[in-house]
């Protein structure tokens, strides 16, 4: 076990180094100079850019600057945005929770609903629940989340005037409940497409498992149907479902960029796209890294969880 964890950690570290270096090299070769953003249209001249570049130490060799970035990372202050001058650390503290808030909420909501309806669909196959579930799944699979977002705004903000169009913290909001209305639409826009996916996948996996020999055997032994489902079908279909869930997380974080734009949600989306266009590598690298670390951690936990759930899986393999 310890050996497995150590190996996993090592692999994660190697991945992180490769990812960060790849992004670093790519963004250093886009031909876009982040300095030009700092100087802006009023002050930019090639000479002024060269001077500032020298002052900020951007003329150092690639490797030196890469190592310097690691030094900033490890010291925990994360450095400054080259293009816009803000402290990356304070930017992160301000933006990251907002993104996690909608992606994780969407994740939880869609997991509960998606797996729930998926299960019911499988149990009551070809019933009205199944039919509706499959229809929602098909639509959820075909309608992009940003389009959903637009429709939701049109419906709930403009027509029904129930929920705010955008923003995260309304003026004067103090408690979580004050800003709950702002959370509903973005989360719904992210969660519905994902729900569809999960529903479909849960249903199909459960039906697969339900047709396996050992389940049939359990049934033939006269075990009540609900017990068969809980004990055998559900348990055994959860592992692939959880794996799919994990892969959805990357889609969620990606999808949230467009949804954040539509709802003016103050998450990392805007900072990230802004930083990428500016080739502001230190910012992009940090945010990407945060996401990669999150993903690798989740994937690690999923494996661990799978091993606990299923005695057939052994971790040291």
């Amino acid at each position: 076990m310890a050996k497995y964890v150590a190996k996993r950690l090592l692999l994660t570290l190697v991945m992180i180094i490769i990812i960060s270096f790849a992004i670093f090299v790519a963004l250093n070769n886009t031909g876009v100079d982040p300095i030009s953003f700092k100087l802006g249209l009023d002050n930019y001249t090639p000479e002024a850019a060269a001077e500032l570049r020298e002052k900020l130490g951007l003329n150092a060799p690639l490797v030196v600057r890469y190592l310097r970035w690691w030094k900033d990372m490890l010291s925990g202050n994360f450095g400054y945005s080259i293009a816009h001058g803000y402290s990356i650390r304070s930017g992160l503290i301000a933006k990251w929770p907002a993104t996690l808030e909608i992606s994780l909420t969407a994740m939880i909501v869609s997991t509960v609903i998606g797996i729930g309806i998926g299960m019911l669909s499988a149990i009551w196959q070809n019933s009205i629940v199944d039919y509706l579930g499959r229809m929602i799944a098909a639509i959820g699979n075909s309608v992009p989340e940003y389009f959903f977002a637009l429709i939701l705004i049109q419906l709930f903000s403009v027509r029904l005037q129930l929920l705010p169009t955008s923003g995260r913290v309304p003026a004067g909001a103090v408690t979580f409940w004050d800003r709950l209305p702002n959370l509903i639409l973005p989360v719904a826009a992210l969660a519905i497409p994902m729900c569809g996916n999960l529903m479909r996948y849960t249903r199909n996996t459960m039906l697969d498992v339900a047709n396996q020999e050992y389940v049939k055997l359990a049934r033939s032994k006269g075990i009540p149907e609900w017990k068969v489902y809980i004990k055998h079908v559900f348990r055994n279909s959860m592992r692939p479902v959880v794996t799919v869930l994990l892969f959805r997380m990357t889609l969620l974080l990606g999808g949230s960029v467009a949804v954040e734009t539509i709802f003016s949600w103050p998450g990392v989306g805007q900072v990230l796209t802004q930083a990428i266009t500016a080739s502001d590598y230190s910012v992009v690298m940090l945010y990407t890294l945060m996401m990669a670390v999150l993903m690798l951690t989740i994937s690690f936990l999923v494996d661990l969880f799978a091993a606990l759930l299923d005695p057939r899986v052994r971790l040291d393999k």
Binding site: G167, V169, A171, A173, S264
Partner: peptide, 11 residues
Amino acid sequence: NVAEASNYSTL
């Protein structure tokens, strides 16, 4: 007040 939104009309 500082509110997290991008335009005044929303506020």
